[in-house]
Simulated scan of single mutants.
Amino acid sequence: MQVPPVFIDMTLEDQAQELRVYLKGLGAEISEEKSAKGIEDDLHKIIGVCDACFKEGQEADVEMVLNDIVSIMVLIPLERSENIILAFCEKLWLLFQSLDNQSPMRYPVYFHLIQIAKITDSVRLVYQDIEHLKQQFANCPPSSDQLQKLYRLLHEVLLKSNQSEQAALVMIELLGTYTDKNASQAREDAIRCIVTALADPNTLLLDPLLSLKPVMFLEGERIHDLLNIFVSENLSAYLKFYKEHKEFVTTQGLNHEQNMQKMRLLSFMQLAESNPEISFEVIENELQMKPEEVESFIIEVLKTKLVRARMDQAAKKVFVSSTMHRTFGRAQWQQLRDLLHSWRGNLSSVQEGMRSITAAQLELLNQS
């Protein structure tokens, strides 16, 4: 079996020629000579026959060939490489669709599709969600190392395309690939996961992170303390932490003003859990806001639909009907259980009432 070329200190043209030689050796219909039209034409021809490496090459060989193509492609100015990128995307997608569901080659092709999606900012065309991703490899699951590599790339690409919520979900999946034996090795991934979740304005239910093994290994560190504040404490606790650790918050890439806004929302949700009636004055004090900021803040909260409430400007009060819980522990499960039992009791009463009405109507019909 031939060994794929390794390109070190070579021109793009020489790298392309080495690829030509390797692919021709696998039976591809391509010349070994460089194209007279330049590197773009070379790459077009190479992409056209790159599937030859799938016929005889091992998974590592396939991945190396695809890596080599990408490494050349990214060095060509974007204004000259657009058609090449599109051709490579199309080739990879057709390859992926045509591969058997049990083929181990599905992983390297999908991985490189995500790489190209990063270059072209088109990840939405390839990646839908975690469940769809798992379906692609249901019959040929990648190794743990491969999954971790893919999830890290996906996280980076999703963040780049401003899909922070999806990126956070991918990072949680990444941490889930670690076991008790190697969770301590996942430190950087765990920190990245926490930071991504804290920075995402749409990620508000944060306590599930605390149960992840790699996150547990961070207990006692500042990042873990900060996570706990966002999970269950209020704005005052965050401001105290920020005052003592400003540089730490900044170096994590977190924005203090955005943190403030998120903590105000979380603190308001916590207030709403136990107070069906909240005065504007309490909101001002608890959330450290100016009187003129309260109404606009409440309007923004109601837009999120995390809290269902009615604002009475004249009485300067908010009347809460329901709210999303910041944490969902034993107390919340008990509350849900009690609610379901209550519903069941009410349904039984309704059912019994309907039976009585039906019996009375039948009796009237019989009498008539």
Rank of each mutant, 00 (worst) to 15 (best):
Q97G: 02
L306N: 12
S211W: 03
Q146W: 04
N259W: 02
V123S: 01
N285Y: 09
N255I: 14
E131C: 01
E292M: 06
I223Q: 00
L339Q: 12
K303H: 12
Q313P: 15
I39Y: 04
N101L: 05
G38S: 04
L235Q: 06
V49M: 01
Q185D: 15
P208A: 04
Q166M: 10
N259Q: 15
K290A: 14
D129L: 06
R187C: 04
R326H: 04
A309Q: 05
Q332D: 07
I116F: 11
F319G: 05
L86E: 15
K34N: 11
G345W: 08
E244D: 15
Q2D: 14
H155R: 07
M289H: 03
E165K: 10
L209M: 00
E281F: 09
T196A: 11
H132E: 14
K240Q: 14
D41F: 02
S348M: 13
F230V: 03
M10C: 09
E295L: 11
L218P: 00
L198S: 01
W343L: 14
D200Q: 02
M216K: 14
S122C: 10
P291E: 07
A360I: 03
Q136E: 14
C50P: 06
A186W: 01
N182Q: 05
K317R: 15
E247R: 14
D9G: 05
G27V: 04
L198R: 00
E59S: 08
E79Y: 13
V301T: 07
R152Q: 11
R124G: 13
D129Q: 09
L12P: 04
I119D: 04
E293G: 02
T304Y: 06
E221F: 04
P141Q: 01
W93K: 13
L19R: 00
S236Y: 10
V282Q: 13
T250R: 12
S279W: 05
E277R: 09
A117K: 00
P214M: 03
Q261Y: 05
I119K: 04
P4G: 07
I172S: 09
M171V: 00
D312F: 06
S98G: 11
E292L: 03
E79L: 08
I47W: 03
N228E: 10
